[in-house]
Design a binder for these strands. Sequence first.
DNA 1: TTGCATCCGGTACCCAGGTACAGGCTTACC
DNA 2: GGTAAGCCTGTACCTGGGTACCGGATGCAA
Lengths: 149, 149
Amino acid sequence: MTPPERFGLRTGEVAEQAGVNIQTLRYYERRGLLAEPARSNGGHRVYPADTVALLGVIKAAQRLGFTLDEVAELLDTGRRRHPSADLRQRAIDKITEIDAKIADLVAIRGTLTEVVDARCDSLTNCTCADCPIPFLTIGTTEHPDGAPA
Amino acid sequence: MTPPERFGLRTGEVAEQAGVNIQTLRYYERRGLLAEPARSNGGHRVYPADTVALLGVIKAAQRLGFTLDEVAELLDTGRRRHPSADLRQRAIDKITEIDAKIADLVAIRGTLTEVVDARCDSLTNCTCADCPIPFLTIGTTEHPDGAPA
DNA sequence: TTGCATCCGGTACCCAGGTACAGGCTTACC
DNA sequence: GGTAAGCCTGTACCTGGGTACCGGATGCAA
C-alpha cells in the first residue's frame, strides 16, 4: 500500500526507485513518455509519486516489445478520451510479431543444437559428418515490419 | 553446379550474388569479417569466388544470434590451427541465451494475450476487471550477457 | 578512344535507446 | 552560513549494423 500522493519526488529518487538512470528520465521527457513535471522554485524537477509506477509501465511495455514511440503513443491514447480498441489491436499485432520472433528463435535453436550434436568445429571448414552449417538458411521469413529476429 | 573457381568477382557481383549492399562488403572488411581481397592494377577489389558463400555463412551466423564481433572471432578461430571445441562451446552458450529470450517472449506473449482477452483499453488507466497490466514485471530475469529480450 | 557503369577512399549519417560530461546553480543538513 | 550532495541545461558520445554521398579514378565494350 503506497501512501496516497506524497509531496513529490526528486529526479534522483525517481531514478533510483524505478531503477533507471537519471539521464533516462530526461530522455523520456524529451521523447514524450513522461510529462514535464512541476519545478521547485530553483528549477529542480518535482515528480508526482506515481511516476515510478509509470516508469514501471513503460519498462513493461518495452519488454512487451513496444518501441518507445509506440509506448508514448499508447500512453497518449490512454490519456485521451477514446481508450478504444486501439491497445487491443496493437497487442494483437504485437503477438503476431512475437510469434514470428519465437519461431525464428526456435529454428535457430534447433540449428545450434545440430551444430552442437554434430560436433561442428569450424564455421567455414567444419570437418564433421552431416554438418548442418551449410544449411543455415533459416530465419529468412518475412516479418510484418520487415525486422529480422 | 557452379563452375569451379572463376577468376574473381568484383564488388558489385559479390554484393548482388550475396544479396548485400556494396557498402556492407567494405564494412565487413573493416570489421575483419572479410579478408582484404586482391586488387586489380587500378586498385579495384577482386574477390575469390567463395566470398559469396562466406557471406552466406556470416549471414547465417548472424541469424543464429551471433554479433559481428563474435562471427569475426569464430571465423578467425576456424582459420587458425586449433579449431577446437570453441564453436561448440559458443553454440552451447548461445542456446542458453536463446532459451532465455524465448522464455521472455513466451511470457510476454502470455501477458499480451491476457491484455487482449481482458479487453484492456489503456496502459495506465485500464478499466477492465483483473487487468494484467500492473503485473507486467516479467522479463526481468538476468540474461547471460545482460541483454533484455 | 570514347563514354558510361562501376569502383575507389573518406566521411558523414541513419536507427534505437540511451549515457556521459562540463560548468554552474540549488537544496539539505549541521 | 558553510559545504557537500544533488540537480540544472546543453551538447557530445556510445553501441550495432549498416547506408549514403562525394569527387575522382577505372574497367570494359563498342
